[in-house]
């Protein structure tokens, strides 16, 4: 294609300049985690992976993020699938997107307001006589299992999943369903043969975005988490901002470890998608 000329490349210039930011930032983080200024070493990685605090935190983070992502995706699919004709109308769509109007930590506060031991739900249940005392209300926020964090994330990400899936469902032509039906397919066939191929790329991307965010964001766990176990992001932030600069390399090592997990996952995800796309294209050509 000869038409790739200078003017075309200029269109990419802002994106290239922008991409320097995350690339430079990540590279510096990686270098610092290997002790750039104090002599190259793997010591910081050894330190964090030998510390019980970090390993517990890593497991807790992965588990919390995974549960939050899976729940968001599943609820999001179920909701969109059941209600997408209703969601074509303006008012229902806007109501569903209410949580997207607020920052995550504000929605986190909402969860505290509603579901903490002194929250609205506990108060109402006591007033109704269902529980004798607000203290009997289950501990759903600032709990050691990360329930509050998961609740906030799921509540906040389900609308995002709906936002991403809605155009896909709206674009699936009803003829496809008719085709599956005439071929004698079941409801399950409808999902696997018609919806899944359309949904897969979007689902993969949305899952990756939500998993990365829930695994590495600071604000919600800082608001709704406990001190032990804590999310890696909170731990790293403490190490980075702690009283001494001594622990900064540990913060870098922790964040780089998380980044590595996410990069590997993204590579697998996109590699799989591209292979599938490539195969589909070849199939349609021959």
């Amino acid at each position: 294609m000869k038409s790739f000329n200078l003017k075309h490349s200029l269109l990419f210039l802002p994106a290239v300049l922008f991409m320097l930011l995350p690339l430079y930032g990540l590279l510096t983080a990686v270098l610092n985690s290997f002790g750039r200024h104090r002599g190259w070493t793997l010591d910081y990685y050894r330190q964090i992976f030998e510390s019980n605090r970090f390993v517990t935190s890593l497991v807790f983070s992965l588990q919390t993020a995974l549960i939050a992502t899976l729940l968001s995706i599943l609820i999001g699919i179920a909701f969109t699938r059941s209600f997408y004709p209703i969601l074509e109308k303006m008012a229902p769509r806007v109501s569903v997107w209410i949580p997207m109007l607020f920052p995550h930590f504000v929605w986190g506060y909402m969860v505290i307001l509603l579901l903490s031991e002194t929250g609205v739900a506990a108060q109402l249940l006591t007033a109704a006589g269902w529980i004798a005392d607000p203290q009997q209300f289950p501990i759903l926020t600032r709990d050691p299992d990360g329930i509050g964090i998961i609740l906030t994330y799921v509540w906040k990400e389900v609308p995002l999943v709906i936002l991403m899936l809605l155009p896909v469902y709206a674009s699936i032509r009803p003829e496809y369903y008719a085709l599956v039906d005439t071929l004698g397919g079941s409801a399950w066939n409808r999902i696997t043969a018609v919806e899944l191929p359309h949904l897969l790329p979007v689902l993969m991307e949305t899952s990756l975005i939500i998993f990365s965010f829930t695994l590495s964001a600071y604000e919600v766990p800082a608001l709704l988490g406990t001190t032990f176990p804590e999310m890696v992001s909170v731990l790293s932030y403490d190490w980075f901002y702690g009283s001494s600069w001594q622990k900064r390399p540990l913060a870098f090592a922790a964040m780089v470890s998380i980044s590595l997990v996410l990069l590997v996952l993204s590579f697998i995800g996109y590699g799989y998608l591209n292979k599938a796309r490539w195969r589909a294209m070849r199939g349609s050509r021959s």
């Binding site: 991409m19 990540l26 983080a29 610092n32 990365s212 590495s216 992001s233 980044s259």
Partner: peptide
Amino acid sequence: KPWVEALLLSPILIPVLAIAMGL
């Protein structure tokens, strides 16, 4: 093109806190 698209999306797949600390 698919890889370029993925690359352009990557800043939200990498922890932004790591990037901020690095920068």
